[in-house]
């Protein structure tokens, strides 16, 4: 039971990181990123490949953050030239390109068979102690990211971002350039998603391209919406509700013995859809969000 609980908390932690990435992009800067999973995948594969090649795990994680950030740079440059709804399409396409590349470049990524045996940290400890230590790392990463985002949001830089979001034309007339902050925020967020990918890979120790399908991005969007757009504690709460719904539906099987697994899988999606509809109806601002002022 403890190991199950640890597993769930670690996955919640990984999704919290992804939700923080999206909250930085969308909640803070207004960038519609429909390609979260692309940066997640880049992070997972980069760190896994570096670690499998025999380098330290820490180097892999740093590589994941750097490569995910760098991959966001050309998209960020595009983002400054496109209207925001186009960025949504560009990022959606980008994530699919990433998935197709890791599927087809078998020489590097082992294609559809995926990468087994990704080194895990603390492997000398017992299973529960290892899980606990890993959870500690995930928590520390989340707190570090939280501190980073708070720093960006509450200060002169955050004020500039707010001004740019409110009225780009007025900001430009005062001598402010909107492109710089946009690209920087996009790259930093992508780095956070890359970090989440690296942690995920090292935790489950086996990654395949099928884990990086577009629906993952939309799970992250759901987590952000349920937790509250722009709310940092909301990132955790949203991710917890999402994983709670996923895992909670596992136990329905026991309550209704006649049902079979396949039906359960569909029922899960029904529950998640229902939860989202109920949120939209009764609490559109999310758990931690403040109601939008008109």
């Amino acid at each position: 039971m403890l190991s199950y609980l640890l597993a769930i908390l670690i996955i919640v932690g990984v999704y919290t990181l992804l939700t923080q990435c999206l909250n930085l992009h969308y909640g803070f800067m207004g960038l519609i990123n429909f390609g979260v999973v692309g940066f997640f995948a880049i992070g997972a594969y980069t760190s896994a490949l570096i670690a499998i090649a025999g380098y330290p795990i820490l180097l892999g994680v740093l590589g994941a953050i750097v490569l995910a950030s760098l991959s966001a740079w050309p998209l960020g440059v595009l983002a400054t030239r496109l209207r925001e709804d186009y960025l949504a399409i560009v990022t959606l396409g980008f994530a699919e390109v990433v998935r197709i590349v890791v599927t087809s470049e078998s020489w590097l990524t082992n294609g559809v068979q995926g990468l087994p045996g990704i080194p895990q940290p603390f492997s000398s400890l017992g299973p529960n102690a290892q899980g606990l230590a890993f959870l500690g790392i995930v928590l520390a990463c989340n707190l570090a990211v939280l501190a980073l985002i708070m720093r960006l949001a509450h200060g002169p830089f955050g004020r500039l971002v707010e001004a740019i979001r409110d009225d780009e034309v007025a900001a430009s007339a005062l001598g402010k350039y909107p492109t710089g902050p946009r690209i920087q925020i996009f790259m930093i967020g992508a780095g956070i998603a890359g970090l989440a990918g690296a942690l995920y890979g090292h935790y489950i120790s086996y990654i395949v391209p099928d884990q990086f399908v577009p629906i993952v991005t939309f799970y992250v969007w759901m987590a952000m919406i349920m937790g509250g757009v722009g709310s940092l504690p909301g990132s955790f709460i949203g991710a917890a509700i999402l994983i709670g719904l996923f895992e909670g539906t596992r136990f329905i099987d026991d309550a209704f013995p006649g049902s079979i697994g396949v039906e359960m899988a569909s029922l899960r999606l029904v529950f998640i859809g229902l939860a989202l509809v109920l949120f939209m109806r009764f609490r559109p601002q999310g758990i931690m969000g403040t109601r939008m002022q008109s």
Partner: peptide
């Protein structure tokens, strides 16, 4: 206010 170091990414961090 013009030319704020605090408005740059490096400055704010």
């Amino acid at each position: 206010a013009a030319n704020q170091y605090g408005q740059t990414l490096i400055g704010t961090l």
